[in-house]
Amino acid sequence: MKTTKTIFQQGNHKWVAIVRDPAKPNFIVDTNEYLITHGGKGLILDPGGAEIFPAVFSALSAEFDPTSLVGIFASHQDPDICSSLALWLEFNPGMRCYVSWLWSGFIPHFGGTAETFVAIPDEGQDISLEGLMLQAVPAHYLHSSGNFNLYDKIAKVLFSGDVGAALLPAGEDGLFVENFDRHIRHAEGFHRRWMGSNEAKRRWCERVSKMDIDMLCPQHGAIYRGADVARFINWFDELQVGIV
């Protein structure tokens, strides 16, 4: 079973990270899921693959009533992002799934009906969670061609999807980045190979460097905090990507 860790809390506004599953088979890539709650409702970010649904669900339900989930934010279309969609919808068939317009015709292969999907335009959009305004921030080609991050300006948290992801070896898989230089070695190969465009990366770095971010939360690996956020953005800006 996965563990949950509340990484931000202010009244009923919370960010919960659902991470690390010792029982997960090794051939399935390890993922982080995040839950944002506000006013008794919840939004789950990149809820993960169908096979890890039991682990994510059980961890989440220990923390939050799963029937109060009103939305799924899918950063992009990958199976490790949202192939569990049909299972989550069983708990609230009225749940909405926010995803790039580019993928809104593809993700239904994982489940849902015409009413389920909210197609995010390329420039992004605001998503309301019981009055809490969240912002879908464009991160196209990083790595998917229709790709979004999600920013919470109250919590100052940026969910960055595959940006910032690291494939951590056992024993070095703490929830937060503690030693940036040591950590980033596990992220370098991934970013070079998975990120498709230096130009898109340049624009992303410019965009997010203007934002007020306390925590940058990727879908794989560890969370960047405080000064490590800017450190990561600078490192990424320098890196040449899109090379095999």
Binding site: P54, F57, S61, A62, T67, A86, L87
Partner: peptide
């Protein structure tokens, strides 16, 4: 059967009642 198996596993791990109903 795949969905039933995954929901069944979820209900074994979680103490939440909603999963049983589902």
């Amino acid at each position: 059967m795949r969905y039933a198996r995954l929901l069944d596993e979820a209900s074994a791990l979680a103490s939440d009642a909603s999963v049983l109903a589902v």
